[in-house]
Design a protein around this nucleic acid. Structure first.
Length: 724
DNA sequence: ATGGACAATGTTTTT
DNA sequence: CATTGTCCAT
């Protein structure tokens, strides 16, 4: 196929850009993934670059998979050898291969946030630091930030006493990680950078190999990633990065959108290509988006435009409180679906914080409508899943103390705190890991060890050590799924979980789900399975096409699109979040977050806010988001839910200043469809217009479809094409 | 070792 | 309010 045929001029320019640094500034909905995939196809197909010499990195597994399948669609078998993956997975691969240059083994485990937290706790304990004064979470955040900036414990800037303490914890934390032969997420990047920095020959090997490096979502890179990319392109200088500063919403995690500008400075010959044409939204939606983002200082102004037409005005809706807000959303969706203006799966409801999903869920539940929730309870974060994974990790890597601590008494087997402490003390004394001591006990010849433990503990420890020893012997003989079965059987995990309650059953279901995944790794082996589990997020496990409305945070919405979007809770203190009030940089990020939400909408956008919000038990009046002030009223259609319908108990005082006038603009739109016209609908195919009338700013069309008969649709939502 | 009572706490979260 | 963690009594 022609790789360029269906691209616009800027997109073509980007795809065909010559050698050297290329920076593509891609507005929302401008076909950024398409450009990236075509570029890869172009390099391989037209420029005869070997796939082996191309590295493409993304931030999420989902993005990586999407790109992979789209490239495969274009090139088929010819993509073999292409390196395509997330930053973290790519780094993990390199680190395992180059472990000889590094202070850990190739079979290191990857610690997730929970594991990290327990390491911090352990470090605090070791150093006798009060976890109340030094919250593990905040200490961990400080450590993580330092790592993102490539700062090691010794270089940790010490301004205050607190910094000094954090530096100490950081040092201990790293020792504990290495002691467990473990790396955290940040380490994957950090160690890669140091690997290249300290071993120029290794760096050159990779820099020579990767003739072309492509990076998606470049505005989300942190300093470590930025340096890493520079190292990787240090030989060929061919990189192709795509990003949009306006969509930078992960600054609080260390991402620095200034890396885009930095790149231009570091590589002055960078070609910059701006993609401004939007293929997603109507002009009405883009106008609102630009009104919001243009208040943002120091930005490269992009003028978003679309050929999709003006579309309907964005609706600004006010409700009495957050409960009626949820009701409004659900009712609007229900009635649209009932009138066949849209399918349930066309809708998304977005909010600032996860906690806001509750009222929405209740409203959906009450209406008896199914929905799906993105994020919230993560599959891999669930206790039972973590338990089973911890067993496997421990068997693979007995040094892993976090996993050991997790499972040593789960299910309970008589190894309580005291026994654990004795074990730890003894292990420390002989300079071995606790896992190794256990193995020794289990392998027989425990004579020397025995005397160090109180009598009753010995039996329990030995029994567990024997198990561990046996599992390890099976390590190479069994496929991951069989090893898992053996362990589950040995520890009676099903009986432990399945306590007869609904919850217990669900937990066991989750284990079975994990088992199903493990079964896919019979060929690749346990290490691959463990890595997959560590580096996967759960957006992946979400079933994509359930045709129900999606509830998600604004953060989770990035990269997605929906025909109809509700953004709820547009209240000062929620968006922008009150925690950002005193930080101008954070406030700008809140604004971008709003912008990201707006630009997810293809056809219709509802901006919703309550007059009162129930926070921590009390209902209090709130102000509409200040960002709403930046949108000219002419771009909006204002409406509100009449108050009598839902008045909760404390309504009397604040609710008197109602203006009942419904400011519905009596705007007349011209009907486009006339009886007798032949039209085409993407789902129902060919049909003929029977009747059409204008109603509520929209055109309601009755159509007789050849396949499915008579349907009534809204012109704004049904994608009708008029046939000659 | 385990469950129950109380206090503390309360963004966003690609890997 | 509702969830989470901590402490204490069994």
């Amino acid at each position: 196929m022609d790789l360029l045929a269906d691209l616009n001029l800027q997109q073509q320019q980007a795809v065909m850009a010559g050698l050297g640094p290329v920076l593509v500034l891609a507005g929302p909905g401008s076909g950024k993934t398409r450009v990236l995939t075509r570029r890869i196809a172009y390099l391989i197909g037209a420029m005869a670059v070997r796939p082996y010499q191309i590295l493409a990195v993304t931030f999420t597994n989902k993005a990586a998979r999407e790109m992979e399948s789209r490239v495969a669609e274009l090139l088929g078998e010819k993509t073999r050898g292409l390196s395509l993956g997330t930053f973290h997975a790519s780094c993990a691969r390199i680190l395992r291969r180059e472990a000889e240059h590094l202070p850990f083994d190739a079979n290191f485990v990857i610690f997730d946030t929970d594991d990290q937290l327990s390491v911090v706790n352990r470090a605090l304990e070791d150093l006798n630091i009060d976890p109340k004064r030094y919250r593990p979470n905040s200490v961990l955040a400080a450590i993580s930030n330092a790592k993102n900036e490539l700062i090691l414990p010794d270089d940790f800037p010490v301004q205050t006493y607190r910094d000094e303490v954090v530096a100490r914890v950081y040092r201990r934390y790293q020792e504990l990680l290495l002691g467990s032969n473990a790396l955290d997420f940040d380490d994957l990047l950090l160690w890669s950078v140091f690997l290249f920095e300290n071993n120029p020959n290794v760096r050159e090997k990779y820099a020579r190999r990767f003739e072309h490096v492509l990076v998606d979502e470049f505005q989300d890179t942190n300093q470590a990633q930025y340096v890493l990319i520079k190292q990787l392109v240090s030989f060929h200088r061919n990189f192709f990065v795509v990003g949009d500063t306006d969509q930078s919403i992960y600054g609080w995690r260390g991402a620095d959108y200034r890396n885009l500008q930095r790149l231009e400075q570091d590589f002055p010959d960078t070609q910059v290509i701006i993609l401004e044409q939007n293929y997603r939204s109507t002009q009405s939606i883009l106008d609102v988006a630009m009104a919001v983002i243009n208040q943002h200082p120091y930005r490269i102004v992009k003028n978003l435009f679309t050929e999709r037409g003006q579309g309907q005005r964005v609706i600004l809706h006010e409700t009495y409180d957050d409960r009626s807000e949820a009701d409004f959303v659900v009712e609007t969706i229900a009635s649209s679906v009932a009138r066949q203006q849209a399918e349930p799966g066309d809708f998304a409801v977005m909010y600032r914080t996860n906690a806001q999903s509750r009222l929405l869920e209740e409203a959906f539940l009450q209406a008896g409508l199914p929905y799906k929730l993105v994020g919230a309870q993560r599959f891999y974060g669930r206790r039972e899943v973590k338990d089973v994974v911890a067993y496997l990790r421990l068997v693979r890597n007995p040094q892993d103390e976090v996993s050991l601590m997790r499972v040593i008494n789960t299910p309970t087997r008589g190894i309580g705190n005291k026994t654990v402490l004795a074990l730890r003390t003894y292990a420390q004394k002989i300079n071995r890991s606790m896992g190794e001591v256990l193995l020794e006990l289990g392998a027989g010849d425990p004579a020397k060890t025995l005397e160090h433990f109180p009598g009753r503990a010995i039996a329990a420890l030995t029994a567990f050590g024997e198990r561990l020893h046996r599992w390890r012997q099976m390590l190479d003989k069994l496929a991951p799924v069989n090893l898992m079965d053996l362990i589950l059987e040995d520890i009676g995990y099903q009986t432990y979980l399945d306590d007869g309650t609904e919850e217990g059953r669900e937990r066991w279901e989750n284990v079975l789900e994990l088992r199903r995944l493990a079964a896919e790794f019979s060929e690749q082996g346990l290490d691959a399975f463990l890595e997959r589990v560590a580096l996967v997020s759960d957006q992946d496990t979400l079933e994509a096409n359930a045709n129900v409305p999606t509830l998600l945070t604004l953060h989770a919405a990035k990269g997605l699109e929906f025909r109809v979007v509700f953004i709820v809770g547009l209240v000062d203190g929620m968006l922008p979040h009150s925690r950002s009030f005193d930080d101008p940089e954070a406030m700008q990020e809140e604004r971008r977050l709003f912008y990201v939400g707006i630009t997810r909408a293809k056809d219709r956008l509802y901006l919703v806010y309550p007059q009162n919000r129930s926070a921590y038990g009390f209902t209090e009046p709130v102000e509409p988001s200040r960002f709403l002030d930046d949108i000219p009223l002419s771009l909006l259609e204002e409406s509100r839910t009449s108050q009598s319908a839902q008045r909760s108990s404390r309504a009397d005082m604040g609710a008197t200043r109602w203006q009942t006038s419904q400011s519905r603009s009596a705007q007349v739109i011209e009907p486009r469809y006339r009886p007798g016209m032949r039209i085409y609908h993407p789902v129902w195919a060919e049909g003929m217009v029977l009747n059409s009338r204008v109603q509520d700013d929209d055109e309601i069309v009755d159509i007789f479809f050849e396949k499915v008969g008579l349907k009534r649709v809204a012109a704004s939502l049904a994608k009708l094409e008029i046939r000659p």
